[in-house]
């Protein structure tokens, strides 16, 4: 890559990394390596984020993430984790229906997890 492109990509870097071509080239190359790597890592990061969101959604109904997914598997519901997390955030009633189906399919998950008690908050606020 030529100098102009390097400096264009180095905009906003700290210290001499944005002004000196030798250092800027090093830092830009390293940055592009990171971005190559992190395009792959992004997929697992997002998946773990979706799982956390689903877990937060299901625990409001007293079901853990693992048992919820097991119930969906038994019912052969093939929604992926991206869609499930979006449903849990934006479509609470559809998500509730999914949790009900899941807990009916796998009754062992009932009375396992208790929803977090948040009684203290209403008193404080």
């Amino acid at each position: 890559m030529n100098k102009d492109k390097i400096f264009k990509l180095a905009k906003g870097f700290r210290g001499r990394a944005k002004n000196c071509i030798r250092i800027a080239r090093e830092r830009v190359e390293k940055a592009l390596q990171y971005s190559y790597r992190d395009r792959r890592n992004k997929k697992r990061d997002m998946r773990s984020l979706w799982i956390q969101r689903i877990n937060a959604g299901t625990r409001q109904h007293g079901v853990s993430y693992g048992n919820f997914m097991h119930g969906l598997l038994k019912e052969n519901i093939q929604l992926n984790r991206k869609v499930l997390s979006e449903l849990s955030m934006h479509e609470p009633y559809s998500f509730k229906a999914l949790v009900d189906i899941s807990s009916n399919a796998f009754p062992g998950n009932k009375n396992v997890v208790f929803p977090p008690k948040k009684e203290g908050i209403s008193i404080v606020v």
Partner: peptide, 15 residues
Amino acid sequence: VLLIGTRTTTYIGKP
């Protein structure tokens, strides 16, 4: 179509 949601009901496909 894996799932359809309307205002009142949800249709959940298997699959």
